[in-house]
Structure formats: structure tokens, C-alpha cells
Design a protein around this nucleic acid. Structure first.
Length: 422
RNA sequence: GGAGAGGUGGCUGAGUGGUCGAAAGCAGCGCUUUGCUAAAGCGCCGUAGGUGUAACAGCCUACCGGGGGUUCGAAUCCCCCCCUCUCCGCCA
């Protein structure tokens, strides 16, 4: 959510942001609605002031006196008026709030212009794609794949997109998670093991609600949502709190399974490990001082990149253009790993600065030098998502004999040098 | 899941249907006293929205777990929900 004052005082900034993100929002209607709301608010408040004044007066009068009774009669009318005006105000306020929610976050000046994914800027690349295994094939075509990654039984037991990982597959998942958490810990992120169900208030603060409820699995009886990412419980940890300025930046990471309904996905995107309804991911999160949030974003991206480098997986960094930026982000980098078998880039991390957009919804603040509460900037990024990293690992490191060579850094976690499908 | 007791400012903790945004204490900040520290005295000290200002100030309104209701008027009375604690039940 944007600062209402920003809309009021600099509507042109908001218009420019909407244009850069190639969205369509009626700013004029919003300004009109805002003006109406303020008018109604003042009306209600002046009626309330009258009530309060009368109240003070009546407290001094003898209870049953004629003056008292007269005053009660008089204030009955005001009471009715307040209630009526308050209903109108409440309706306007609800409409205004809903309309405000349609305003996207302002993109940062460094975000490139552009409309589609083709307009994203390749910011950096690492590793040599050409020298990878000539034996590479899509991971789902590797002999024995279906024994270790049992999609059929996953479908029987739960449904499509909920595979079983068996033997070496389960071990490599665990090794990757363990490796990610250890490395992130070394980089200064405190490990957290959060709830994997959240309530509606939390899902609203991070932007899953309203409108995106269809993307989450819901435990209806309890009003809980299965987390689509650890970002949700992690960010909400400090919801409605005021942090110490000296404590910033706060850096945390968490592993959770992530649950996504992914309605509407199809084709090659969903083959094998490319897109699942349940997958494992380690998320990085930072709460930072507004003055340093872009430096912190670069550092966060660097932390995620470092994981891919240590695994020896070639990747590129995309700087997302205005049109491909998320609604709530000011700036975003995607990390895409090269998948030698599919011959395509797979997104394994998305590192974003939300500035105050999430913090305003979640009311996460710090006390500044003047002693006044001020919104923090929140950043997050994957560090990393397991299935696609694993897909690239299986494909890029496939040996002529059908085994997969495990990167040296993972061997201590995995326990042996090759993953076998036999 | 059942029974009971609670939820008030950063913390502890008073609070009668009206003069309560809320006593008191602690913590914090400022000043005074003091050789320093400690101590004492005095003052300040919640958040949000609106209005206002060059910016402060000021003014108005809301907020006593959340949401409804009763009333001229609700922290206080009624209803629903959430959370915490104790006991019982169940259980990794």
C-alpha cells in the first residue's frame, strides 16, 4: 500500500509509477474518493466533538434535573446523526481503502523501462554454459528418474505436483537445504523455523490477500492458509511492532515447504521438477533502514548468487523491467540457473526491495533519531528454491554412465560423490 | 475438546456508566542540586487519522485484545470471536 499523502500531494509521481509498470488505474477517481472521505470524516468528527462537549456539561448537572432531561432529548438527535453519518463514512472508507490497494508500489529510478519479460535486462551472467555435459537431457528423461522422484504415487496419495522423493532424491533435497541454511547462517542470516500455516491478517499484510486467495491452500475450518513462501510468516514476525533503529538491519532466513495451487499453469513449465504444488525453499529476509535498502538489496542478491557459485551452476541475473516488476516491488532481480538438458533458464530466486510497501501494510517500524516511528524497508529473496536447482544439478552434472556428480561443497552433506538412479 | 481466571500505555498495575487517553510505580528524556558516580527534586514522556504550519506548535477525532450491541454518554454493561494462564481430557 502506498502512503495516502503521496497520492494527495504528488499524484504525478503515482501516475508515472503506474505508467512505468504498464498498469491501468484511475487516479482521478481515487483523488475524488479521497476528498469525499475527508469531507465526511470532518463532519463525523465535528458531531462527535459536540457530543463530547455535551457530555462534559451533563456530567456537572444533577441527574434528574429539567436541564439534564432537556439535554438528553437534544443529544438524542445528534446521536442519530452521528450514527448515520458514520455509516456513510464507513462505506466511503471501505471503498477508498479498496481503491488504494489497487495502487502499485513506485518502481525505483534504476528500474529499466519495458513492458514484457523480453525487456528485462541481463544484469550479469556467471559460469560457462557451453562446456556443460554433452550427455545432458531433461531431468525427467534420465533413466530411473521416476523411481527416485515418484510423481505417480504422489498423484495417488495427494494429487499432481506432489511427488515423493525416494532414497538419493530425498537425501539430495536434505543436503541442499542443509547447505543453504549453513551458508546463509555464515552470511549473517539468523535461522528461523516458522509456522507453515498463517492467518488471514498475515496473508493480507504480505499481499497474498485479498485477490490472490486462489493461489493458496486453505484450511477452511480454522481460517489458516498454507504458506506459499516463508516470506509470509517471516515478514509477519514483526507485524505491528516498533524496532530499535540500532538493531537494523535484521537479517533472517527460514526453510519451509511452500504450497502453491498454481492454477492455470501448463506445458513444459510443469514437467518434472519445474513447477510443483509443494516444494522446499529457503527464504532470505531483511528489515533495513530506508537509507541503505538498495545496498542491502545488492548484498542480498550477492548472498543468493554465492550459493549457485559454490554449487558450480551457471546462472544469469535479470534486472526486471517496469512491466515485469511485481505490483508491490520497487526493484527486483531474478536469478536464473541454466538447465543444460532443457536448454533454458530456470528461475531459482527472486530478490526484491519492497521499500515501505509491505511495511506499511504490516506496520513494521523503527524509532528514528527524532524518536518518531518510521516505516522500515523490507527485502526478500530465495536462498534458494530446491527443485529447480536440483533439476539443473541433475542435468548439468549428468555423467555418461547415468550417475550425477555431486558438487564438492555438497558431498559432506550428501555423504557420497555420486547420486545414482539405480 | 471441557471447566475456571484473565487481557488496560515500553513494563508493572489502579480504574466508580459521565469531569478518563486513562491514577500510581518502574524504565526513558531534559533541567536543577552535587567534586564524579549514586541519590534527591522538578518537568516531559503512547499511536494513528484529519486540520493547520515554511517547518514546529496548536486544534479536532479515534484507540483500554478484535468485532458487534445497549445508552444522550462505554475501558466500565450485554453478545460473538481471538489470545494467555490454571485444572481435566487427548496426544507426537
Amino acid at each position: 500500500m502506498l502512503d495516502p499523502k503521496l497520492l494527495r500531494e504528488s499524484p504525478d509521481l503515482v501516475r508515472a509509477a503506474i505508467a512505468k509498470k504498464h498498469l491501468d488505474v484511475d487516479v482521478e477517481a481515487l483523488l475524488t474518493l479521497d476528498a469525499a472521505w475527508r469531507g465526511q470524516l470532518q463532519q463525523v468528527e465535528s458531531l462527535r466533538a459536540a457530543q463530547k462537549a455535551a457530555n462534559t456539561e451533563m456530567a456537572k448537572l444533577p441527574k434528574g434535573s429539567p436541564e439534564f432531561i432537556a439535554k438528553v432529548q437534544e443529544m438524542k438527535a445528534v446521536s442519530t446523526q452521528v450514527k448515520e453519518a458514520d455509516v456513510v463514512l464507513g462505506e466511503t472508507e471501505a471503498r477508498l481503502k479498496q481503491a488504494m490497494m489497487t495502487l502499485p508500489n513506485l518502481p525505483h529510478a534504476s528500474v529499466p523501462e519495458g513492458r514484457t519479460p523480453e525487456d528485462n535486462v541481463v544484469f550479469a551472467t556467471w559460469g560457462d554454459v557451453a562446456t556443460l555435459s554433452p550427455h545432458a537431457k531433461p531431468h525427467w528423461e534420465i533413466a530411473g528418474f521416476e523411481k527416485l522422484f515418484d510423481f505417480a504415487r504422489g498423484s495417488k496419495v495427494t494429487g499432481a505436483g506432489f511427488p515423493f522423493y525416494i532414497g538419493d532424491a530425498a537425501r539430495i533435497v536434505r543436503a541442499l537445504l542443509h547447505f543453504f541454511l549453513d551458508e546463509n547462517g555464515k552470511a549473517g542470516y539468523v535461522e528461523v523455523n516458522p509456522p507453515i500455516f498463517v492467518n488471514a491478517a498475515s496473508a493480507t499484510a504480505t499481499g497474498q490477500l485479498p485477490d490472490k486467495e486462489g493461489q493458496m491452500y486453505e484450511a477452511v475450518a480454522d481460517g489458516f492458509y498454507a504458506v506459499p513462501t516463508a516470506e509470509v510468516p517471516l515478514t509477519n514476525f514483526f507485524r505491528d511492532e516498533i524496532l530499535d533503529e540500532a538493531a537494523l538491519p535484521v537479517k533472517r532466513c527460514a526453510y519451509t515447504p511452500c504450497f502453491r495451487r498454481e492454477a492455470g499453469s501448463y506445458g513444459k513449465d510443469v514437467r518434472g521438477l519445474n513447477r510443483l504444488h509443494q516444494f522446499d525453499k529457503v527464504e532470505l529476509l531483511k528489515w533495513v533502514h530506508p537509507s541503505s535498502s538498495y545496498d542491502e538489496l545488492d548484498a542480498l542478491r550477492g548472498d543468493a548468487e554465492n550459493l549457485l557459485r559454490k554449487l558450480g551452476l551457471p546462472y544469469r541475473v535479470l534486472l526486471m523491467c517496469g512491466g515485469d516488476l511485481g505490483f508491490s516491488q520497487s526493484k527486483k532481480y531474478d536469478l536464473e540457473v541454466w538447465s543444460a538438458g532443457q536448454k533454458r533458464w530456470l528461475e531459482v530466486s527472486s530478490c526484491s526491495n519492497f521499500e515501505t510497501f509491505q511495511a506499511r501494510r504490516a506496520q513494521i517500524r523503527f524509532r528514528n533519531a527524532d524518536g518518531k516511528p518510521e516505516l522500515v524497508h523490507t527485502l526478500n529473496g530465495s536462498g534458494l528454491a530446491v527443485p529447480r536447482v536440483l533439476a539443473a544439478l541433475l542435468e548439468n552434472n549428468l555423467q555418461p554412465d547415468g550417475r550425477v556428480k555431486i558438487p564438492a561443497v555438497l558431498v559432506p552433506y550428501f555423504g557420497k560423490e555420486y547420486l545414482t538412479f539405480a
